[in-house]
Nucleic acid binder design. Structure first.
Lengths: 126, 126
DNA sequence: AAATGGCAACTACAAATGTAGTGAATAGGC
DNA sequence: GCCTATTCACTACATTTGTAGTTGCCATTT
């Protein structure tokens, strides 16, 4: 498994678009993102290039001979890496304070709380 | 309450040192951090300056007339801001997937699980 | 064939970040 | 009073990030 590269914030949106659906050409990604980020196509191309250099994306030719982009790393792996680094940076690497923090600082429905408690139980005998 | 400024990674270590104990002079902070980060004193000074500019730290004169630094924002507020932004970036702003992720990806003791479940319950009737 | 419309490749450029060095002012130690 | 160590205030400089513009090439349209 390729080690998850460091993905910056704008880049992350591009990755999301491609994790969501790939392969896509540069202009397809641009269109996908247009509603949220209002980026010029060249901006998206730059981000795509950088992600390829970082090894987060791969390219391939499509039928009509244009370049198309697709993830080279799994979303789950990147999420884990980002999560690790965040937990390290803010909570000194400790999971419990992190979980306490988010449990306290967000409003959850009774339903969600129930699910989470189940998850916690399962996390024990595994 | 001063809005929590954006604190970069290296800067965060400096803030931690000062949240931990303040006020401290530049060289005290440097010594505090020396074991972990092996930074030149000037590096620490630069970070301190930038944090003052950002409004994350304040300065004061100590008895011997040298400048001393202390937090201008509460750690809790900064943690909340960072947490918000992280949750936004990686989990589209949703707390539950975040909590699920960390519950699954970290090993917790039975004791911790118990505490967390209690927290979750309390988060409901508040 | 000449113009046009996309795509690719390269270049641009400012702000933020990481990591210091230099030089001036100052304050104690002798 | 002079030297030396500390502090300060500036300056430096490479990388990364955010956000494009410019130009060359190619295929499609008149």
């Amino acid at each position: 498994m390729p080690t998850a590269p460091d993905i910056a914030e704008s880049e992350w949106s591009v990755m999301e678009a491609l994790w969501e659906s790939s392969p896509q050409t540069a202009s397809e990604v641009t269109k996908t993102l247009r509603p949220t980020m209002n980026w010029a196509e060249n901006t998206v191309r730059t981000l795509l290039m950088r992600l390829v250099e970082k090894g987060a994306l791969k390219t391939a030719e499509n039928a009509s001979g244009t370049r198309t982009f697709l993830p080279a790393v799994k979303r789950e792996a990147c999420v884990r890496a980002e999560g690790e680094s965040f937990m390290q940076r803010i909570f000194g690497g400790a999971a419990k304070p992190l979980l306490v923090h988010f449990a306290q600082n967000t409003k959850l429905t009774a339903e969600e709380v129930k699910e989470l408690k189940k998850m916690l139980d399962q996390s024990l005998n595994s």
